[in-house]
Design a protein around this nucleic acid. Sequence first.
RNA 1: CGGGAGGUAGUUCAGCCCGGUAGAAUACGUGGUUUGGGACCACGGGGUCGCAGGUUCGAAUCCUGUCCUCCCGACCA
Length: 492
Amino acid sequence: MSKEITSRLQDYAQWYNDLVIKGGLADYSAVRGCMVIKPYGFTLWENMRDQLDRMFKDTGHVNAYFPLFVPKSLFEAEEKNAEGFAKECAIVTHYRLKSDPDNKGKLIVDPEAKLEEELVVRPTSEAIIWSTYKTWIQSYRDLPLLINQWANVVRWEMRTRLFLRTTEFLWQEGHTAHATAQEAIEETTRMLDVYADFAENWMALPVIKGVKTASERFAGAIDTYCIEAMMQDGKALQAGTSHFLGQNFAKAFDVQFLNKENKQEYVWATSWGVSTRLIGALVMAHSDDDGLIIPPKIAPFQVVIVPIHKGEEQKAVIDAKVKTLVQELKLAGIRVKYDDNDNNRPGWKFAEYEKKGVPVRIAIGARDIENNTVEIARRDTKEKVSVGMDDLPLRIINLLQQIQQDMFDKAKAYRDEHITPANTWDEFVRLLNEKGGFISAHWDGTDETEEKIKEQTKATIRCIPLNGEAEEGKCILTGQPSKKRVLFAQAY
RNA sequence: CGGGAGGUAGUUCAGCCCGGUAGAAUACGUGGUUUGGGACCACGGGGUCGCAGGUUCGAAUCCUGUCCUCCCGACCA
């Protein structure tokens, strides 16, 4: 048991905070609701970002960058979108400070420097991007337009949590324009598939693909598709969204193209995004009371090597051996760190790297040199084995793959155990209180019922699963007929 | 915005009630002994006690004001 980390059982929220802070991912900052992403956390993000970026490019997208600021008049053009985000916008009203005449050394906002038109700090970029697309799109030959941007956005949330909900966060947002609704819908689901692929195969995070109900839909979208993940406390977390925007933004920004028949048509749009929130999902899905557990494919370090030696002579022998090993491992494409820092003893390092979630630890001491072995320890299972040094890279590659797979299987088993059908209201309430997780239940399809259920249980409809089968049933609350089960859960 | 906790060394905190030379642990630096699960000894550097007023011979401590952060809830990715 770690000396520093609160156990999940004792205080789940504190456990999460401890992991983020003490695992070295991020720090609180001087700015309310904003965090500093530390190098270890940022390397993790870079690894995730780089892989997602490859996947976007493999599906035909290119990157661009649009401004941080959105003139208010553009922001309000798409009414629903503007309304949805209005109450969480930061707004720039002035462009200059000046010395405070009454308070030496202090600055005040210069009232002379008020902007003619306020600038909204983007909470999302549809407005600025679609105002630009208007000038880029004339003909069906300009379509599809498949653009992604990596950016920061600001949403002035009332309550923030490290990674899960910060005032400023990093994300990517894809914004595409298409000639037909069909194409746009295909794009929407294609990107949902990319997200699910990434979550499952890179983050070892099993997700459920689904579509949001009207009340949970992105402001300005026709349909919002999502991937939903399950955390260890039985609460759901939305890990990514892909929106079919119809012609809403094209109409708001008057983006038309000439089709093959020489007729003007509004273009069809999608947008899709994932954010640094994924890191929160990763932390909460996999880690334990000793610290983070990071899946090998995206771990900043996949392997850490710790030397154990008595005296400088032994150290020199170990150093020489490790130097070769590191070279071999790097050549095999493994991200490896050799920690020969003399300040800390091996035991301290073991605990430290467990806290940081490094998937594999290799310990090498005099005993190993003598026997031509190393000790390999897995972070996820804590298993330790002593193995021969020969073929180490291959062995490590296989082990990393195994860990990646085992982490996914474990998370999936947990997730699957926490999808429970409920057929009566009593059962529904009892499951939510006693077990948590996703509750699969019938719903009559109305906003009112959804809202009532939320008021009474705090559970919301996370999604209507895409793979759900048609089934006649009765709404859990109203008894009205329903044709398909939906997934309820309390969510982050 | 409501409720709670808090701001003193890099970090975690004690000291405040009852005013009188700013402390501990840990981290850091140097030297030495160590190293198979969070080592130890010696010496050393480091703090305008969140900020601004006030009371007082004297304020980290008492009073007033103010700023900020974290946690819980309502809002949300």
